[in-house]
Amino acid sequence: MNFCRTESLIDTVTHYCPGCGHGIIHRLVAEVLDELGVREKTIATAPVGCAVLFYNYMKCDIIECAHGRSPAVATAIKRLLPENVVFTYQGDGDLAAIGMAETIHAANRGENITVIFVNNAIYGMTGGQMAPTTLLGQMSTTTEAGRGNNQEGPPIKVCELLSMLDGVTYLERVAVNDAKNVIKTKKAIRKGFLNQIEGRGFSMVEVLSMCPTDWKVSPLKAAEFVNIDMKSVFPLGVYKDEDGQ
């Protein structure tokens, strides 16, 4: 087996910080598109946030959406082009704060799309403010004393929340803190896309990911934070699999 850059991933340096999980997740998505042979019929959405420049890295048609609106945009595209593969790539602020309504309703309608949800528990692009998924006690630039000390409430668990909806087909939470989990993440992403290709409906893969810069730790500590702290709040696993496979 060879390990080299896959075709869907543009051969360039990313703007991501050292140790950021986005680069890993981009690569996994690109590899899955190529393995399934669907790159040329794929339309992706780019979010607002660190991954806004997604189109600089992925070799497929991409539409950059307003903050949080990707599921609505993807709904329209997929309904009009059902033979194409449509996926959204969203961060935690995009998907679980400003775009929560779009997320819930696209999921509940059972839109036949794939959602790649990157949860790094912080607003990265804007400089480290509290995200809807920031952990209790976790410091951010808007919760300097740690989340929860000023009525911020606990982190939102999106997989658990969406698992209540009958319209949803597949929900899995994975992580990219180590190679073993990266391989599992790819499997989940592949399943998310296969579900769409086989017409099964709404799939979301939540990926716990590192943000060393805004967590203000080293890349190795960040991987450890995902492994210990994030996983204990956001347990990995399949939250819904209507297909039962």
Binding site: I63, C65, A66, R69, A72, V73, A74, T75, A76, I77, R79, L80, L81, A101, E102, I104, H105
Partner: peptide, 26 residues
């Protein structure tokens, strides 16, 4: 054609953003 009752005005206009991107009159 495709009709969607959106969850909000915000979602509706963003569905138009997506629909138009496919070249469909919307």
């Amino acid at each position: 054609g495709v009709f969607v009752q959106a969850e909000s005005e915000v979602a509706a206009i963003n569905m138009i953003f997506g629909a138009s991107a496919t070249g469909t009159r919307c």
